[in-house]
């Protein structure tokens, strides 16, 4: 008889019954996949990035499929903090699943304001700060690639919220360890690795870029090895948990992240390919661990051989 492995993990004070969430921007604001996915099966739901005010985002085309992945330059359109609270937060009253809200800003003040607004919302379990969006002109990736600005943002948000704070790191930095450490030093409860990777594609006939924004972020299976390497590097220098993401399509992919050093994982682009992926990942991880008599996620975490 196999014992069920202990799938629980903690991000600061947030307890997740399993280590699997969805990646911000790939799962809407909650209701969109509710017909297809049993939301309460997830360790947490992470919603699309939200800033203080409503934002229109980029022109179309906003996404483009590439080999083993896709480019996106959605540009963070959204209803703003109050819009989210009014329009989407009530939906979560029907569910028990922890809610992680992804936030972003054009300025440090924006980040701080949106964190403050959401801090009062009891239904929100944690905040994930996007300092690494490759697709907005102001803010976005800038805060994720300059370590001084990065610290300013993390400090500003940390002051405004008692909720577990997750910082989503940019992959396109010379040394991820510098940012992982900075997040930890500024009081973050966890880091997410990674956002999509800055990239581009061109139509050779029209010689136009495939995205209206010209460049976008690459996601999907194509980036998984990059993400694994970044998680592995960051895990060596920080004690706070890492939420690993980038091309997770199967339980095996998720386990690879855990072994590299992640405490939790997020399924992103794979939900577009197959909305049932996230539940399949949870069930598959559990089965895999049970079959190998691994008693908990914690036991598996960071066990990559030197």
């Amino acid at each position: 008889m196999n014992e069920k492995p202990d799938m629980r993990i903690k991000i600061g004070s947030l307890e997740m019954k399993n280590p699997v969430t969805v990646a911000s921007g790939t799962f809407g604001y909650g209701p969109e996949y509710a017909d297809l996915v049993d939301l309460d099966r997830l360790g947490a739901i992470t919603v699309k990035g939200i800033c203080t005010e409503p934002h229109v985002g980029n022109s179309t085309p906003r996404t483009f499929e590439t080999s083993g992945g896709m480019l996106n330059a959605i540009g963070l359109p959204g209803p703003g903090a109050q819009g989210f609270i009014k329009k989407y937060l009530p939906f979560f009253e029907n569910y028990r699943v922890p809610l992680i809200v992804n936030i972003w800003g054009k300025t440090v003040e924006d980040y701080s304001r949106v964190a403050e607004i959401f801090n009062d919302q009891a239904r929100i379990s944690a905040l994930e700060v996007n300092v690494s969006c490759p697709n907005v002109k102001e803010g976005g990736a800038l805060y994720g690639t300059d370590v001084n600005l990065f610290r300013t943002v993390v400090d500003a948000v940390r002051i405004k919220t008692q909720k577990p704070l997750i910082i989503k790191l940019a992959p396109n930095v010379a040394d991820i360890k510098v940012f992982a450490r900075a997040a930890e030093e500024c009081g973050a409860d966890a880091v997410s690795i990674m956002n999509s990777y800055p990239a581009m594609a061109i139509d050779i006939e029209t010689r136009k870029t495939q995205l209206a924004n010209r460049t976008g972020g690459l996601s999907g299976p194509a980036i998984k090895p990059i993400a694994i390497k970044l998680v592995w590097e960051a895990a060596k220098v920080i004690k706070i948990p890492i939420i690993g993401m980038g091309g997770i399509y199967s339980p095996e992919d998720a386990l690879e992240f855990i072994i590299a050093g992640a405490s939790a994982v997020a399924v992103g682009t794979a939900s577009f390919t197959d909305p049932s992926t996230v539940v399949r990942v949870i069930e598959g991880m559990e089965k895999w661990m049970a079959a190998r008599k691994i008693s908990s996620v914690a036991e598996l975490k960071g066990t990559v051989q030197a």
């Binding site: 921007g25 790939t26 799962f27 809407g28 969109e32 996949y33 297809l36 699309k48 985002g57 179309t60 085309p61 906003r62 996404t63 896709m70 996106n72 959605i74 359109p77 939900s271 577009f272 909305p275």
Partner: peptide
């Protein structure tokens, strides 16, 4: 007719 990714309203690719 617009290019789509998710098809269910989640990704905001297909906007008009």
């Amino acid at each position: 007719d617009r290019n789509m990714a998710c098809g269910v309203g989640a990704c905001l690719t297909c906007v008009i």
